[in-house]
Design a protein around this nucleic acid. Structure first.
Lengths: 191, 191
DNA sequence: GTCTATATACAGATAGAC
DNA sequence: GTCTATCTGTATATAGAC
């Protein structure tokens, strides 16, 4: 692996673990086994390095769906599973981004706009599926699709955050997925 | 106000806004209009100051319930409202504590143990109410009380976190409370 | 209790050899 | 591209006057 990549990977790990301000370039240099000067040669400033790291981190973020042949409630459940998988597969970075948002350290940039956009896209999908089910009579019409989509997503986020914070003590995140589907998806069905 | 208190309040605000590492004692001294040396005279180290700040912050955290004369589902809804009120009233510190947990910056201390304890206490309450309702036949017996309590709490946390991150864009936190109660409490009732 | 002045360490960043 | 040596600022912390 070339030095530039080594720096990026090391910085990604340290930023995600300790945050931006709490990670020194001396530490990145030490862990990556290069000189500090080399970091500046490649990235010019610490902030540029940070942006490069974020860029690489977000790059694989995507949402591609294959919901063919499923009923609306099955589609919703599939989306819930996909979201859960996505977060667990990107645990460190999701956790990191969340902490950036919480501390208002998220720079206003295309990257963060893209993350929010992806999130909105996901919520929009949930909503459309519910509305589609209401049109063809498989989902109760009195439900407010936007609220229900927001609620499902909030519950999912809450489960994941709870997993971040209380690793072990509370019911595990995975164990709450089934009750989530039962309470927030199955109850939508028209019997 | 005496200088010590002034330092504590200033530090509390800065720590909560910028985090521990990102807040310098020079800045605390400047904002509190005292010398840096005075901070050290009162608190000896930066970390001690931090602990003192956390201590003062958590001190008013408590949970006192008055659920007399309410049905089980009404009790659950009341608890949801109380939790929501508690978090919104302590928005900055809750947000701060969450970011500490996310970054593994939470020192293992009585304070953090107390926060987790309070949280467990709340979840235990939800669970007991559900079990009580199952015993007297007002809540469906096939529900797993522990899971349902965890799910309600997760959904609540998710709603609040969503409020932290997306102030404005998504459905407001408050708007999701009613759907939450409808989906996770009212559906428990035996018709 | 509160201050000014200072010690010491380490941060981000640059200069210049190779 | 990569290094060593160094600059400059600022961090935590201390010494000692008042």
């Amino acid at each position: 692996m070339d030095a530039r990549t080594k720096i990026l990977e090391t910085a990604a790990r340290l930023f995600a673990t300790h945050g931006y301000e709490n990670t020194s370039l001396s530490q990145v240099a030490r862990d990556a086994a290069v000189s500090k000067a080399l970091i500046f040669w490649h990235f010019e400033t610490k902030e540029n390095l940070f942006r490069a790291v974020l860029s690489r981190t977000v790059e694989p973020y995507s949402l591609d769906l294959d919901l063919d042949g499923l009923s609306e409630t099955e589609q919703l459940k599939k989306l819930i599973d996909l979201y859960y998988e996505f977060v667990t597969e990107n645990l460190y970075s999701v956790r990191f981004f969340l902490s950036l948002f919480l501390r208002d350290e998220a720079p206003q940039s295309d990257l963060f706009a893209r993350i929010l956009e992806l999130y909105e896209l996901y919520r929009g999908q949930l909503r459309e599926i519910i509305e589609s089910g209401q049109k063809n009579g498989t989902i109760a019409p009195q439900i407010d699709a936007a609220s229900q989509a927001g609620l499902i997503l909030s519950a999912l986020n809450g489960i994941l955050v709870q997993g971040f914070v209380f690793a072990g003590s509370t019911p595990s995140a995975e164990a709450l997925l089934a009750p989530l589907k039962a309470a927030l998806v199955d109850t939508l069905k028209i019997q």
